Simulated scan of single mutants.
Amino acid sequence: MPTRFNYDRLAELLAQFDMTPSAAEVQGMLTGLIATGSDAQSDELMTLMTDLAYDGNTMPAELKNLLREQAEEIQAALGDRDMGYQLLLPDDQAPLGDRLQALGGWVQSFLVGFGVNQANVANTSGDLREALDDMIEIAKLDFDDEDGEDAERAYFEVAEYLRISAMMCFTELGHHQQTVPEKNKTLH
């Protein structure tokens, strides 16, 4: 699924609005919120993002539109049958240290978004609880700037695991909350 923004372009746009979180952190936060049931088009989502990512300050309309577009893209990608959701991280040409830092920020921000909407994970599947536990452990890691083939492979494996975990979360929690049950219609 093609995306409208790459990491560098979104980082540039967010910097125009003095956003504190990085592009990866913004996507992680939005993903955590949407994966747990927030609707991409809801005013509630923008209120949460104002509080979480813009220090509660009044968010300019242009920034709201940018975040709403990104949220809609995330929601569509999470629900994509072809598993088209991708983490928004620096490209493969960026130094591994920068990519690791962005990955750490993404997972921490995902957990923030998740925590806002999901106070109790007891009712989730064992697989999702395990993935969330793993995400918590990944968020605690101090990513070293090791270079080399093993470090690259580990980076890609962790990024893929986080991608799949986010989609699993959406399938189990977010997808169901966004489908409104039809009321029984009786014909007379």
Rank of each mutant, 00 (worst) to 15 (best):
Leu187Pro: 02
Ala122Phe: 01
Thr58Ser: 14
Gln27Arg: 05
Arg81Asp: 13
Arg99Tyr: 02
Ala24Trp: 12
Arg163Cys: 05
His175Trp: 10
Gln75Thr: 01
Asp80Tyr: 04
Glu69Cys: 04
Ile136Arg: 13
Glu149Thr: 14
Pro2Cys: 10
Gly97Asn: 15
Ala71Leu: 01
Gly105Gln: 03
Lys64Ser: 15
Val107Gln: 04
Leu162His: 13
Asp147Gln: 13
Gln93Gly: 11
Tyr7Cys: 09
Glu182Met: 10
Asp134Ala: 06
Ala11Val: 06
Glu152Ile: 07
Gln101His: 11
Asp145Lys: 07
Leu128Glu: 01
Ile34Asp: 01
Ala71Phe: 03
His175Thr: 12
Gly28Arg: 03
Met29Asp: 02
Ala23Gly: 07
Glu62Cys: 01
Gln27Glu: 11
Glu172Gln: 06
Ala11Gln: 14
Met168Gly: 08
Ala131Cys: 00
Ala35Phe: 03
Cys169Lys: 07
Phe17Leu: 02
Met167Tyr: 00
Gly174Val: 12
Met19Trp: 02
Asp144Lys: 13
Glu157Lys: 13
Leu13Pro: 06
Ser38Trp: 01
Arg4Val: 08
Asp91Leu: 00
Val107Lys: 06
Lys140Met: 06
Asp18Phe: 05
Glu25Met: 09
Leu67Pro: 06
Leu89Val: 00
Met167Arg: 13
His175Glu: 10
Pro181His: 04
Phe110Pro: 10
Leu66Ile: 02
Asp55Thr: 14
Asp8His: 15
Ala122Lys: 09
Ala94Pro: 00
Asp51Phe: 04
Tyr85Met: 11
Asn117Phe: 08
Glu130Phe: 10
Asn6Asp: 15
Glu137Gln: 15
Lys185Ile: 15
Gly37Phe: 00
Asn184Pro: 15
Ala76Tyr: 09
Glu25Pro: 08
Asp92Ala: 10
Gln108Glu: 14
Ile74Ala: 07
Ala122Ile: 08
Asp98Thr: 14
Gly84His: 04
Met49Lys: 02
Thr50Asp: 09
